[in-house]
């Protein structure tokens, strides 16, 4: 369509001009692809290089050289093994924290959105405004009290994993606003007559949620769970403030520590970054559509 328009405008006229236009378009698109992938590319090549290859070759060059003859001298997976063993425990910590935090904040968000959208009473709009504003609040404004709060409600003194529980609860609390807003925007599109029909059918609010709303929310659960998983997995700030015991470190924190301890070994750093990012990258590649939806709502 666009090419036809330029054709009509008289700027260009021939078929070859049109395809030239198209070539320029794809050229620009590919240039951006290069730009967007370059940090990952340089990380990937570096993570597979031996120390020698690292010092001798540019990050542009892959570790495997095919010309003049293929040789593998510069190639190694050692950085990955090193980073992997360094990060393994923190990956487990991350999963142990992220999964309950994600599921519970999504579930609470769904329940809250249902209670605030499909059952009406005064003051709803006010509460929803509070939830919406909470989505945007800079977390710095709560860090000091948060640390105070968890030193008073001291779960970490009860158990050596207590800090992780504190972090999980914190993520649930701060995840609720966005989850509620996401679910609310979905529930608003749900036919009100459906709920009314269920009420006439004799179902209680809880039954309506369980039998009608919940099954119909499954697509939105996918969006919300993916959004929250990415957010919580990627979080650094709350972990930094709440976790003090190295054994409880989540992967973002441990990766930062790894960077500090291996300041010159870029190969291990890059491999570590990829390992830490792997779960979110996999989720992103498998559920790109839902990920994008969560971002735009």
């Amino acid at each position: 369509m666009a090419t036809e328009t330029s054709d009509e405008s008289g700027l260009t006229g021939t078929v070859s001009d049109l395809s030239l236009n198209r070539v320029a378009l794809y050229g620009a698109l590919l240039a951006f692809v290069g730009l967007y992938l370059s940090p990952l590319y340089s990380g990937l090549t570096t993570s597979f290089k031996t120390q020698q290859a690292f010092t001798q070759t540019s990050p542009l060059q892959p570790p495997i050289e095919l010309l003049p003859v293929p040789h593998l001298e510069g190639f190694t997976i050692d950085p990955w093994l090193t980073a992997g063993s360094e990060l393994a425990f923190s990956m487990i910590n991350s999963f142990a924290m992220v999964i309950p935090a994600t599921v519970l904040s999504a579930l609470l968000g769904s329940l809250t959105a249902y209670g605030l959208t499909k059952v009406d009473w005064r003051g709803q709009a006010f509460l929803l405004a509070l939830f919406l504003a909470a989505v945007f609040i800079p977390y710095q404004a709560v860090l000091v009290p948060l640390r105070q709060f968890w030193s008073i409600v001291d779960i970490s003194s009860l158990h050596e994993r207590g800090e992780l529980v504190e972090l999980t609860i914190t993520h649930i609390a701060y995840g609720i606003p966005i989850c509620t807003i996401l679910f609310r925007s979905y529930y608003q599109t749900l036919d009100d007559e459906l709920i009314e029909a269920a009420r006439l059918d004799g179902a209680s609010l809880a039954r309506i949620y369980r039998k009608i709303v919940l099954p119909l929310s499954l697509p939105m659960f996918a969006v919300t769970l993916i959004y929250q998983f990415t957010q919580v997995w990627n979080d650094f700030l709350f972990a930094l403030v709440l976790l003090s015991n190295r054994a409880n470190y989540v992967v973002t924190l441990e990766l930062n520590a790894l960077q500090g301890s291996m300041a010159t070994d870029y190969g291990v750093q890059m491999a570590g970054a990829f390992i830490a990012a792997l779960p979110t990258i996999l989720v992103y590649i498998m559920f790109g559509e839902q990920f994008a939806k969560g971002q735009t709502l």
């Binding site: 036919d191 007559e193 009314e196 029909a197 006439l200 009608i212 119909l216």
Partner: peptide, 18 residues
């Protein structure tokens, strides 16, 4: 509503899609 012994047909039919 459920105690009224009534039944209603809605404009949108309100059939449960799932």
């Amino acid at each position: 509503p459920k105690e009224r012994d009534i039944a209603m047909v809605f404009q949108s039919y309100a059939l449960y899609p799932h």
